[in-house]
Design a protein around this nucleic acid. Sequence first.
DNA 1: TCAAAAGTGTTCGTAATACACCCATGT
DNA 2: ACATGGGTGTATTACGAACACTTTTGA
Lengths: 229, 229
Amino acid sequence: MKEVLPQFNSTFSIDCVVFGFDEGELKVLLIERNEEPFKDWCALPGNLVRVDESLDQSALRILKELTGLGDIFMEQFYTFGNVDRHPQGRVISIAYYALLRLGGDKALKPITSYAKKAFWKNISDLPKLAFDHQMIFEKGLEKIKRRIKHQPIAFELLPEKFTLTQLQNVYELIMGKKLDKRNFRKKMLSFGVLKELDEKQKGVSFRAATLYKFDRRKYAKLFGKEISF
Amino acid sequence: MKEVLPQFNSTFSIDCVVFGFDEGELKVLLIERNEEPFKDWCALPGNLVRVDESLDQSALRILKELTGLGDIFMEQFYTFGNVDRHPQGRVISIAYYALLRLGGDKALKPITSYAKKAFWKNISDLPKLAFDHQMIFEKGLEKIKRRIKHQPIAFELLPEKFTLTQLQNVYELIMGKKLDKRNFRKKMLSFGVLKELDEKQKGVSFRAATLYKFDRRKYAKLFGKEISF
DNA sequence: TCAAAAGTGTTCGTAATACACCCATGT
DNA sequence: ACATGGGTGTATTACGAACACTTTTGA
């Protein structure tokens, strides 16, 4: 076992698996590292936890620094603590997943010392990642696969107004399989948590689809009941 | 924020929510602390992680020190990291739940410096707990409530040979509700992972029940299929 | 008029639920 | 003989799965 880094008062860090949905693809946010170890490698965004912030606060801060965005849906999913996961010392990492609406091509701001740049990468086309980040990514993807069946997390990836086909698309990408259109719509609408809008999709060269929004009030009323999407 | 304790190279600890089933009751393992802070309070068993052991190894070691038992089913479920959760400094805690066969009245060995004694307590009758251990316990219980529906963890609480009524009892205690006997048996047997033995319960003053054991081989073959107990 | 996606119902099989009585055993 | 838990079947309902064609729109 190597020496613990002397500058670490508390040797734990946060790593984030940030999912985004855009152009029909499920993407994950990566950075290119600007520091040793693993300088110039791709990695999940992450950083040390400050001594005066909780784990949740730390995760939010890290994402805010990278994306400028504040109200992001995040959840802690696992803590990775193998002895040799960090080549310079004993650093455990608490992993979070986050779900992000991409829509308006929001600019990423990797103006942090440890990252050269940040970018989105399709999840089926990942480069080699630093540390044990490959494993963290995989466990994060598994987690949202299970979560999406029981909680309305898909809406976090979509704009406020979305079509049923877009919604189905998100489900298919996360679950990794095709779904039947009629069954999907029937079931999704049967929960009564989608509000049909008097508004249609625009700018498409075919029949415009109806837009819906997720009704958080109605969903809150269902709470306790196990929904199974 | 208080000063970080100087003796901590790595300021993280493990806490364990250890469930046991005995005499028809679901119990949790507690210790009585012998150290500040919270001296003389009841707490979940836990300790600092050593610099040369992984989190899983640490959790196993802590339980081995208390119970003398080695092959215990454990799983990490959440990491608690509020800034003020430890009154003496910044200490985050990685929480594990464990499931234990109680049967033969195995002796507990609380021969560790930090605990005066260890004992089992019915989960519906818990004392005030040190730190944020009440919250950790509750989140652990929630976790096994969800787990038991999809994974065969109930068997970890039972002796190798058990009756269907005992099994149902475990499910009812963890899920917190009564189940229908006929439906429970039909469903449980339909998975084909229980092996009926040529053996009956002994020492009871009524009709002896058939004993079963959990067939890990057959269960392994089902893997990938979502079982829903 | 063609291409591309939107939108829509029915059937079938399986799984979940509700429900009550007789049986075997030890005292 | 009685008390205690063991053990069993059926009918009803709800849910998931499979499946194909017509409609709308813009280019």
